[in-house]
Simulated scan of single mutants.
Amino acid sequence: MSAQVNPGRHTAAAEGDVVVFLIGMRINRLWALRSWLPVFTAMPRMLRELSRDKGSGFLGYRLLFGGRVICVLQYWSTKEQLFSYAAQQDKQHRPAWTAFNRRARAGKGRVGIWHETYAVPAGSYESVYVDMPGFGLGGVAGVVPVGRRGETAAQRLKAGERAA
């Protein structure tokens, strides 16, 4: 994702369905490094693996930090591709998940994890970025001037409904 500011008003160039996947961890006991550090270090390996695999359906991500919570905002082409990655025995996710479950039983609540998946049909999302570098969906799909899709959120949603 570029740090160069796109001057003016833009909207995401994404078309079609999109899947938004939020996954994160919460450090419940800060000094329990052996419980949460392996969880923290597993995610960068998965993100590198996904970023290299152009056929995975993974579009991109953004890291978000807030206190004891670390969140990864991910964008995927389809929920089937997301679920497929999660289930593949030869990818980074399965061993990380197995290891987490083993440590979680022994760690008794020292670290928490969570995820949320949103399958968003075409025509059901819109965006605006004003004087921003690529961010969110616009960061992974690119941006176009808002005039191409509509000046207001309602107009952009209506344009997305027509395109769907």
Rank of each mutant, 00 (worst) to 15 (best):
G134M: 04
L64W: 05
R62A: 09
E126S: 07
E15V: 13
V72N: 12
I27S: 07
I113Q: 00
I23N: 09
L137P: 00
E49S: 11
L157C: 06
A122D: 01
G109D: 02
G55T: 15
M25I: 03
G147I: 15
Y129W: 03
L64C: 02
N6I: 15
W97G: 11
G147D: 11
P38M: 05
T117I: 14
E126H: 07
I23R: 13
T117A: 07
A99G: 05
V111P: 00
A119N: 11
K108S: 06
A3P: 02
I70S: 11
A106Y: 07
R48V: 12
G112E: 03
Q155A: 13
R9A: 10
G107Y: 10
L22A: 06
N28K: 13
R9F: 07
I27V: 14
E116Y: 05
A141W: 04
I70P: 03
Q74I: 06
R34K: 13
A159E: 00
W97Y: 14
R102T: 14
V5K: 06
V69D: 08
F21S: 07
P44E: 00
V128T: 15
G109L: 04
T152D: 02
W36L: 04
L37E: 00
L37S: 06
A42D: 06
H93P: 05
F100W: 11
A164Y: 07
G142W: 03
Q74G: 02
R26T: 05
A163R: 15
Q88A: 13
Q89A: 14
S77Y: 02
T117F: 02
G24K: 05
A12L: 07
L30G: 10
F21I: 09
D131A: 10
G57V: 01
R45S: 10
V20W: 13
G150C: 04
K91T: 09
R52V: 11
V111C: 03
A154E: 14
G57K: 00
L37R: 14
V5A: 02
L137Y: 07
A154I: 11
V20K: 14
M43V: 12
A104N: 04
V146Q: 00
I113S: 03
M43Y: 09
S124Y: 14
A163Q: 15
G16D: 02
R94Q: 13
Y85L: 02
E126L: 08
Q81P: 02
Q74P: 01
L33T: 12
G60C: 05
Q74K: 03
A14F: 14
V72I: 15
A119R: 13
A119Y: 04
